[in-house]
Amino acid sequence: DPASLAIIIDYFDTRRADTLKEAFNLLESEAKMNELMNLQKKQLDEMAKNNAAAQQIVQQNERMAKLNKQIAKSSKWTNWWLFWK
């Protein structure tokens, strides 16, 4: 394809490859490296999403704990009031 051909020409211009075989091998290894880097980026993005979701769960748990304390406090007063009524 034209993009690969342009890259191979650049390899020769920058003297990264001396033969067509070297250029093809370099092109293939860089393509594999880019594929691995893209996969790693996707994994990091997924980890960041999971971390954000975990943070939200922690915050929700903290809010629930606070509400549970308020409910417990309110129920003490309600029970006391019902007992003395």
Rank of each mutant, 00 (worst) to 15 (best):
K85A: 12
Q55D: 09
A54Y: 06
D18V: 03
I7G: 00
W77R: 06
R63Y: 10
S4H: 12
N34L: 15
K41I: 11
A6C: 04
D10L: 10
R16T: 09
N79D: 09
F24T: 09
N34E: 15
A3P: 00
L36K: 00
S4P: 05
A17M: 02
W81F: 13
K42H: 13
K42S: 10
A65V: 08
M37N: 02
A54G: 00
S29E: 09
Q70T: 05
Q60R: 03
W84I: 10
R15Q: 04
A23M: 02
W84H: 12
Q40D: 11
Y11W: 05
K49S: 03
R15N: 11
A65C: 04
Q55M: 06
E62L: 12
N34W: 14
R16K: 09
Q70V: 02
A52I: 06
E22C: 02
K42Y: 06
A72P: 00
A65S: 14
L26A: 01
F12E: 01
Q59L: 05
N61E: 07
M64R: 01
T19P: 01
N68M: 08
L26S: 04
S74D: 02
N34T: 14
L5M: 08
E22S: 01
A53N: 10
N38W: 14
Q70W: 12
A54R: 10
L67F: 14
E62I: 11
Q40L: 06
D18K: 08
L39G: 14
S74A: 03
E35G: 12
E28W: 00
T78Y: 04
K69R: 09
K49A: 07
A48F: 03
E28V: 11
Y11C: 06
T78V: 10
D1E: 14
N50P: 01
N50L: 06
A52N: 09
K73M: 03
N25M: 09
L36G: 01
K66P: 01
L5G: 12
A17D: 00
K49W: 11
Q40F: 05
K41Q: 10
I9L: 12
F83D: 08
W81Y: 10
D10C: 07
